[in-house]
């Protein structure tokens, strides 16, 4: 059961995704006490952009990290560009 702060945190993350024209229908967001869990696929909204580059994904994750409520992010179940795991981008130092 997310607390009120967790809901506000989730809404903050959602705003970042909307700003980047990311298809919200393909992603699931969960926050609990500063821990963010992102699942699904980061896909540009149909017709908005070509697929995201690793650098863009790194920037996106960095924006989410910068939110004051974000303590940790788990994106082990999050993919982009049809299957690349976001963890690989973060591991390369971009996230």
């Amino acid at each position: 059961m997310p607390a009120k702060n967790d809901l506000q945190h989730m809404r903050g993350i959602r705003k970042i995704l909307v700003k980047h024209w990311i298809d919200l229908g393909r992603m699931r967001i969960n926050c609990r006490d500063g821990h963010v869990e992102l699942r699904g696929t980061i896909t540009p909204l149909f017709g908005s952009n070509p697929d995201f580059s690793a650098e863009q994904i790194g920037q996106l994750i960095a924006h989410i990290r910068k939110l004051p409520d974000t303590a940790t992010i788990d994106f082990s179940e999050l993919k982009f560009n049809g299957g690349t795991n976001v963890t690989s981008v973060a591991a390369a130092g971009n996230g």
Partner: peptide
């Protein structure tokens, strides 16, 4: 709620 993601497009 939709089965048609392509309906949601900035165009």
């Amino acid at each position: 709620v939709t089965a048609y993601p392509k309906a949601l497009t900035p165009s």
